[in-house]
Amino acid sequence: MTTTPILRLRGIDKSFGAVQVLHDVSFDVRPGEVTALVGDNGAGKSTLVKCIGGIHPIDGGEYWFDGERVQVHSPREAAALGVEIVYQDLALCDNLDIVQNMFLGREKRRGLVLDDTTMEEMAARTLEGLSVRTVTSIRQQVSSLSGGQRQTVAIAKAVLWNSKVVVLDEPTAALGVAQTAQVLELVRRLADNGLAVVLISHNMNDVFAVSDRIAALYLGRMAAQVSTSDVTYSQVVELITSGRSGDLGLAHSNGVTA
């Protein structure tokens, strides 16, 4: 417990109609750390992320940010706090260049005219801060980029706005080996730069490679949130598949009776 969490969720409930997707979920995210969010399909990872990002309003529970209790009702409010989410489909415009994509919807202007120079400078500085060296020109169109480079651009876009928490939804799912390594390196660098990073992943290798902490969801409940160094690969798999592993996890293995 070296640092205090910047984002703290307590007792989050979320239902869609009659289906309760999240039960009493608590979740902490600390600056300077990569927190891996794992769980089987349908465990509620995406719902939790959308609650954090303000896309789904929470039904019950508390959302604490930087020591203050806040209400987040829209993506805009989440962004204003400094929470940025990079979804799996990246949401980039292929026909625009890297700088234009990074500033889309929040362009810098001088009067009526786009201030291209300032935007290019800021984009270059951000990419430099992330030690990104894989793009030849930040004025090239996104359509000419590889999958890993696109992911890099999407992450850089999220970092550009002095964000404090960056949530990455399966950033390596569609990538090859070399590109996965590069993106993971970038994820690690984000945390080393002092950001709080949430990494959603199905890939245990990725999780153990970069995360400081692992949070495992099981059927809509937080089974455990532990330090990566305290658990083994197979313990995490057990947490994902049955909600408990030895002393860790939910009191009842089916997780539904509580």
């Binding site: 990104v132 060296r133 090859g176 070399a178 590109q179």
Partner: peptide, 16 residues
Amino acid sequence: TAAVVPEKPELPHGPG
């Protein structure tokens, strides 16, 4: 695509 394509080699002129 999920092709295993190595990134372009590092270039001396990065964006920065």
